[in-house]
Simulated scan of single mutants.
Amino acid sequence: MGVAGGWTARVAAYNEKRRKDKIELARIKASAQTEQLRITQTSKTAITKVLARHDDVDARWFGYELDLATLIEYPMMTDLREPLTLAFHRAKVRADDLRPNHPDELLEPAVFAEYRDAVSEYATAFDAAEREARRRKQADFSPVERERLERARRLVAVAADSAATPAERQAAYRKARAELDGLIAVPPAASEKIERRISAALEPGRER
């Protein structure tokens, strides 16, 4: 009885230990799952932030790319002969290339890190180019060239003025482009925006 009782006690102790071990393993697994969920949620928050930062820099760039009058005031923003401008445009291309079609593609840490760093480089390069462009304005142009830029600015205002006739707007836009020729690299998007507005003016009710 003593031997049997001792064996039974050892089996009971072993089973109890296994039960406690299973409970502990379940607790560890649940804790790990909770931590993984926390990490995933944090990653999604980080993804949202970096995508928003990308959008913010894009919006600032569109303020130049789509607004010819602003670009005339700060022409360095499209002058790729300038190292800061070239660096900004290259950084933008890289960030745009790495931007995924769906945010979940950035859940992979290595993919996210590469995109995040590219957006950071884009933002930093844009800040540097914009600061210098706003400091210099039209200082790099001769007095004669600045007069051409001023004429172009006034003509662009007429081209964008809905109170002017379509013919006046078309003529003003053509003259503005002639004044800017050889002075400023006009982004296609800026040209298309004005041209669409002028074309829409030919049909009442269509202009936006």
Score class of each variant (00 low, 15 high):
65 E>M: 07
142 S>Q: 12
64 Y>H: 00
172 A>N: 04
115 Y>P: 00
180 L>K: 07
21 D>S: 11
147 E>S: 14
20 K>I: 03
96 D>W: 11
74 Y>S: 07
119 V>K: 07
202 L>P: 02
2 G>S: 11
37 L>V: 13
19 R>C: 05
43 S>L: 08
135 R>K: 13
33 Q>S: 06
102 H>Q: 11
200 A>E: 05
205 G>C: 13
13 A>D: 13
16 E>T: 15
64 Y>K: 00
208 R>N: 03
205 G>K: 10
19 R>Q: 15
66 L>H: 10
188 P>E: 08
31 S>H: 06
16 E>N: 15
94 R>A: 07
160 A>L: 13
1 M>F: 09
52 A>H: 12
93 V>L: 03
80 L>N: 07
97 D>I: 05
194 I>T: 06
89 H>D: 08
69 A>S: 10
25 L>S: 12
167 A>T: 14
87 A>E: 08
55 D>I: 10
177 R>L: 11
98 L>G: 05
126 F>S: 12
29 K>G: 02
49 K>P: 06
6 G>E: 12
78 T>K: 01
119 V>P: 00
45 T>I: 15
157 A>V: 13
3 V>L: 13
68 L>W: 01
165 T>L: 11
206 R>F: 03
96 D>Y: 03
167 A>M: 13
11 V>W: 03
50 V>G: 01
150 E>W: 01
193 K>P: 00
165 T>V: 09
157 A>N: 03
169 R>N: 03
133 A>D: 01
80 L>Y: 01
93 V>R: 02
50 V>C: 00
170 Q>P: 05
70 T>E: 00
142 S>E: 10
42 T>I: 07
2 G>I: 10
54 H>Q: 05
175 K>H: 04
176 A>H: 00
103 P>G: 01
139 A>I: 11
201 A>D: 04
197 R>C: 08
31 S>F: 05
57 V>R: 06
44 K>S: 02
70 T>G: 01
46 A>T: 13
29 K>L: 04
66 L>W: 02
126 F>D: 08
143 P>I: 11
48 T>H: 11
92 K>G: 02
8 T>G: 09
58 D>K: 11
107 L>S: 12
140 D>T: 09
42 T>P: 00
141 F>N: 00
138 Q>H: 14
179 E>K: 02
